[in-house]
């Protein structure tokens, strides 16, 4: 419950949580955990996109196609 209990000074800028144990500023903070998590998300996105497009979609029987004969004819 403590997370919601704060002691603000001017009502505008939040101050430390009561259970905060240290203060990290922008320069000394590398969000390595975040990098790992979004990296995993990226890999899931790529894998699922490939699966969806090439297996689920292109493997899903008849598809609407264009008349490519003119293209072939020109080539």
């Amino acid at each position: 419950m403590s997370s919601a209990i704060e002691k603000g000074v001017d009502g505008k800028h939040p101050t430390n949580e009561t259970d905060q144990v240290r203060e990290l500023d922008h320069d000394e903070y590398d969000p390595i955990g975040t990098a790992i998590l979004v990296g995993i998300y990226f890999l899931i996105l790529v894998a699922l996109w490939i699966f969806m497009y090439f297996v689920e979609f292109l493997g899903n029987g008849p598809t609407v196609t264009g008349v490519l004969l003119t293209v072939v004819g020109l080539a």
């Binding site: 949580e17 203060e23 990290l24 969000p31 390595i32 955990g33 975040t34 790992i36 998590l37 979004v38």
Partner: peptide, 18 residues
């Protein structure tokens, strides 16, 4: 947003990669 959450977690004593 996740980096901000991680910042909070580390200030609360969170450690490690995950």
């Amino acid at each position: 947003v996740v980096a901000s959450m991680e910042h909070g977690a580390r200030q609360r004593g969170g450690k490690g990669y995950l």
